[in-house]
Each structure stands twice: as C-alpha cells, then as structure tokens.
C-alpha cells in the first residue's frame, strides 16, 4: 500500500476549474480525452457487465431476449412475403436468412442508438454526484448492442446451416465494415444522449423514428434499383453498411465500394466531432440532466 501511495503521489496533477478552460478544439484537449478514456477502460467493462447482468437477471429466458426482436421480425416479414402481402423482389439467398442478416446489422445500429441515447439520463444519479469519464456510460451502453449482435451471429450461423447457404470467403472483411458503423452509432449516440439530457423528447421519439427509418433502409428488401427509390442506397448513411455486409457474405464482391468509403470517412468524422462535443457539454449536462 505504501509503495502504491508513493508511486501515485509522483503523478499528482493539479487541476484548475475555470469557466472557460474547457472550451475550444485544441490539441491538448484531445490528448486529455484519450487519456481519460484509456484510464477508464476498466470502468467501461464494469458498467457493461453491470447493465448486462442486471438486464437479464430475474428473467426466465435470459439472453434469448437478445435475439427475440430479430426472430419476430424475420418471422413476420417472411410470412408477409410468402403470402404475397408485401411485394418484395427476389433475393439471392433464401429470404429468412436474407432478412435476418439485414436485421442483425440494422439492430446493431438501432439498439445501440436507443441504449446510448438513454444512457446518460438513466445514470443521472451518478452523473450529478460523481466525477468520472462519462464517455464510459455511452460506450458501455453500446457494448450491450455489440453483445446482442454477437448472440445473433450464432442465430445467423444456425439459419445459414439450415438453408445450406455457404458464405463467401470475403466474410472475413465484414468487421472492417462494422467498425465504421459502430463509430457512427457511438457518434450519434454521444450527440443524442446529451440532447436527451436536455430535451427528453429525443429519447421518446427515437423508437418511432427508428421504426420508420428501418423501412428507408434496405433491411427487409433488397437494395432498390429504380429511381427515386435508389436514393435510399446513397442518402441513408446506414444503407451502405448493410448492403456491404450482405455483399461480402453472400456475393463476394462489393456493389457500392465508393459509397462505403465515403460513409466510413463520414462516420469517423461524426465520431470524433461528437466525442468532442460530448466532452465539452458534460459539465452543462451535470447541471441539467
């Protein structure tokens, strides 16, 4: 204990809180943000475990709930398509597998966004009482979405095996598509969580907006080819990720490489800018959340 104390004392830093010191986009602020995040990686992991075990405790089906929404959607749309209610074009793999794949990626984004948006408000208790890197709350909330996604991968594997679909070798590139998607989700999450801290309306309307947005994304139908619907592939920032994931798993080629590149760059920018805004806004949020 003595040694750790002495060691610690060496690193004592002086902090000055003034009204304007935290403003601006200066380089030192980025360094401070990165340091803070690295220091609190363990906290992030703890919070993630906490949310996870708290969510599925006192529940009979436990982790099955992580895949339930996907299964229900897949069953619904498979039925709607086979009964001819919804005119959905032919897909290159059996439709249930096709929808499941699209839904899984979409849910990684949608669940992530919902959870991150709520994360600050749910933790208002600690935000207003303890000083720590609040980014961890948002990231831990997104972690839950990743966890759900990983469980769904198992389901996807089962469904693919059932329909005897063999994925293309390019499946190994899928993570490189999902990382920018994750960055974009967390970026939006940063912004929406502070917005939700000030205006609760954001969180309340998000579920509605996301349900609607899902139909503007090629999740349950193949990417449209006709004008004006084809705009969905270009203007919706989520579409390229979903299309690319499907392409890599089922076709082995990318149908929209340029778009994918642009959205990836865009998502990196969104992430960095949002993170910075989040960092700046934190003291204000602690006042008002």
């Amino acid at each position: 204990m003595e040694t750790s104390r002495a060691e610690y004392t060496k690193h004592i830093q002086e902090v000055v809180y003034t009204p304007d010191a935290h403003l601006g986009f200066g380089w030192h602020v980025w360094r401070e943000m990165a340091r803070e995040l690295i220091q609190s990686r363990e906290l992030m992991w703890r919070l993630f475990l906490r949310d996870l075990s708290a969510r599925y405790r006192q529940s009979v089906f436990g982790y099955v709930w992580a895949v339930m929404p996907a299964i229900v959607t897949v069953v619904t749309f498979t039925y709607l398509k086979s009964s001819g209610t919804l005119p959905i074009g032919e897909t290159n793999i059996p439709y249930p597998a096709y929808v499941l794949l699209g839904m899984s990626v979409w849910q990684l984004f949608a669940t992530g966004l919902t959870r991150t948006t709520q994360s600050l408000v749910q933790a208002r208790d600690i935000i207003t009482k303890i000083n720590f890197a609040r980014e961890t709350l948002v990231l831990a909330a997104f972690g839950e979405s990743i966890f759900n996604f990983l469980i769904r991968i198992v389901l996807i594997g089962v469904v693919f095996a059932w329909f005897r679909v063999v994925p293309a070798w390019t499946i190994i590139f899928v993570p490189f598509v999902l990382i920018p998607l994750a960055l974009m989700t967390v970026g939006f999450g940063f912004i929406l969580s502070i917005a939700n801290g000030v205006f609760r309306d954001i969180g309340n309307s998000l579920t509605l907006v996301l349900t609607f947005a899902m139909f503007l994304t090629p999740v349950i139908y193949p990417p449209p080819t006709q004008w004006p619907k084809v705009l969905i592939n270009y203007l919706n920032p989520i579409s390229p990720f979903i299309i690319a994931t499907r392409d890599l798993i089922t076709k082995g080629t990318l149908s929209q490489p340029d778009e994918l590149l642009w959205v990836s760059v865009f998502s990196l920018i969104v992430f960095l800018v949002a993170w910075r805004i989040f960092h700046l806004a934190m003291p204000r949020i602690a006042e008002r959340v």
């Binding site: 003034t18 009204p19 935000i127 303890i130 000083n131 003291p283 602690a286 006042e287």
Partner: peptide, 10 residues
C-alpha cells in the same frame, strides 16, 4: 469537477 463554475476558479 462535476460542474464548472461560471465565474472564478478552483
């Protein structure tokens, strides 16, 4: 450091 003063410093 939970909230930042609007005037003065710490």
């Amino acid at each position: 450091g939970i909230i930042i003063p609007d005037k003065g410093n710490l």
